[in-house]
Amino acid sequence: MTSPLGKDLLGLEKLTAEQIGLILDTAEPLKEISERTIKKVPTLRGATIVNLFFEASTRTRISFEFAEKRMSADTVNVASAGSSISKGETLVDTARNLEAMKIDMVVIRHNSSGAAQFLAERIESNVINAGDGTHEHPTQGLLDLLTLRQRWGSLKGRKVCICGDVLHSRVARSNIWGLQKLGAEVAVCGPRSLLPSAIGEMGVTVFDRIEQAIEWADALNVLRLQLERMEGGYIPSLREYNRVFGVTRERLDRAPKEILIMHPGPMNRGVEIDSDVADGPHSVILDQVTNGVAVRMAVLYLLAGNSPRLAEAAKGGV
């Protein structure tokens, strides 16, 4: 009795196109629940989910929490500040403690790549990666795919360019794998200092100039430029970044076709993206946020079901 996704959702690289399609197909009807007066279904009644955030996050955590609550799960949030995590407890001990508390699922955000997999290998509960270091952020990738699929119907042959700090972006990696699996053409654009040196081996086109990317793309997924990157010496200044790589109205106006604009948030307006682009007619940024809840509900729904303890509870219930 395994879920169609396996025990955990750790990344999109290891999923098949069919599995990704199933998640998106499941997410579609779930969007309706958030439109209801009573925004709740009893699906995960009795399931306990821990949102384990070793790294500050507002929107992802809130999105997961909405998804969990709309599926009637009991949720506990553990954030790094003030918890034993900040007191030097190791990930192993955290895992063992969670297991001892008989939880069903863990949503983990951690600043180390591979942390979600590390946890998943050590506990029986389902583990959902909510972002591990600079590795993957699969639910963000999925919500991006859902957003594009809603606009286009199919991603086959569509051109999507991921713009900005690909090197440090887990969103970029999840997007690259997900888009490629669904048949889209993927490009990246940004200063070479913010692209992995082996980017060419990832099956993507590389644009050095944003103008070329705009000319080519059907959609731009504009990544957040962390302010630390300037301090880290990867780029000379945010001002110059905006002038050379910023997605601006003037640049988009020269595009040969309509381009959808995505951004995983939070945005640095005036740095990687200008306000009139973010708020413009081709921006699907708020659709992304809406879709985020539905996609996460779908993942929760699809992963649940191979928990023996919940199965027992279900027999005794209703």
Binding site: M1, P29, L30, P42, Y301, L302, G305, A311, A314
Partner: peptide, 20 residues
Amino acid sequence: TLYRDDLQTVGPRPIVGRTD
């Protein structure tokens, strides 16, 4: 589907249809 009482015991997850 989301209101079933046997979700934890059924094998592959049933496909969720549209409620309208």
